[in-house]
Write a protein that binds this DNA or RNA. Structure first.
Length: 320
DNA sequence: CGTATTTGACCAGCGC
DNA sequence: GCGCTGGTCAAATACG
């Protein structure tokens, strides 16, 4: 088959109602999807009747997608409301969450309890609080250790993803990994490497209950601004990519964000804008793109509908 | 070759 | 005091 015509005509991907412009920023993925579509197209070149039926199906899927989008929007609003309530509650009752580490072991076990609560809420408590004076807190007198407060973040990842990396805009250097008693998954230990004097440490471990959830525990307070925010201020096109600790909630909600962007990139500028805010960091964008590409290419209905739409367009083209 | 990550060894706190 | 456990160090290794 001769692909040159289709390749030259990029408009074949501009499926009118389908807002595939999302891929404008991701040429590589676009190419992948494009080639797959072409292959499927070559395999499934069908009569006009069949393409008409497929177009109907495309419309049906689009409508379904729209409904799902609306549901997601509602869910997102509910989530934000819940999160703000939780944050408000935390700010009113800080002592209940940010327990001092007077006794290491006991605080560890109590943290595990709050951990499960956070997972249930899908939320994160406040930012990092006061810090220990350096990375050697375990050697410091108890008075100083007591000052070190912790915060916790839960990040939704793919279960197949074995890396214990939580992208929060800061630079971290891994300095240890340990399998703990109460969780078969190893716990990774990170130090903030953006500033040599930054005392912040974080521990990342998969949740026992749901291994797709990464639980990041932050200790201390950064004594420097978020590197991603520095980048943002230096480039007016870049919005604030990720906040400090609570960014993980942004990451955790990237799934819905993908869908919203796919369906609302034209109709809702506000949503598109908020999505852009969350996906400006290259790593996050890469992650999003990978997710989108895999979900799209795995969906036989989607590729079928796309092939139908393309074939319809080309057939129209040929009638001229 | 410089930097980041891995991993076994070591240390300190805690319970018995 | 001893053993268990979590946390950290640092040499070895991997990677760009």
């Amino acid at each position: 088959m001769d692909y040159s015509a289709a390749n030259d005509d990029d408009a074949s991907l501009d499926l009118n109602s389908m807002p595939l412009r999302l891929f404008d920023d991701t040429p590589m993925i676009k190419k992948e999807v494009h080639s797959k579509i072409l292959i499927d197209f070559g395999r499934q070149l069908s009569p006009k009747e069949e393409s008409g039926a497929l177009l109907e199906e495309l419309h049906r899927v689009s409508a379904e997608n729209k409904k799902l989008t609306e549901m997601l929007t509602v869910m997102g609003e509910n989530y934000n409301a819940l999160r703000s309530q939780l944050l408000e509650y935390m700010s009113k009752n800080p002592e209940k969450e940010l327990s001092p580490i007077s006794k290491k072991r006991k605080s560890e076990s109590s943290n595990n309890n709050t951990n499960s609560n956070n997972i249930m809420n899908g939320a994160v408590n406040g930012n990092s609080e006061s810090s220990s004076s350096d990375g050697e807190s375990y050697k410091k007198p108890r008075e100083e250790i007591v000052k070190a407060k912790i915060s916790r973040a839960c990040v939704q990842t793919e279960a197949s993803d074995t890396s214990l990396v939580v992208k929060d805009g800061y630079q971290w250097r891994k300095y240890g990994q340990k399998v703990t008693r109460d969780n078969p998954c190893p716990r990774a230990y990170f130090k903030c490497s953006f500033a040599p004097s930054c005392p912040v440490k974080k521990k990342v471990q998969r949740s026992v209950e749901d291994q797709s959830i990464l639980v990041a525990t932050y200790e201390g307070e950064h004594n420097h601004p978020n590197p991603s925010q520095i980048e943002a201020t230096s480039d007016s096109n870049h919005c604030v990519a990720i906040g400090s600790v609570p960014c993980s909630t942004s990451l955790g909600s990237t799934g819905p964000t993908i869908t919203l962007d796919l369906t609302k990139s034209k109709s809702s500028t506000a949503d598109a804008k908020s999505t852009k805010i969350r996906t400006e960091t290259p790593e996050v964008r890469k992650f999003l793109v990978e997710q989108m590409a895999s979900s799209l290419t795995k969906d036989p209905d989607f590729t079928k509908a796309l092939a139908a739409a393309i074939s319809g367009r080309i057939l129209q083209h040929n009638t001229y």
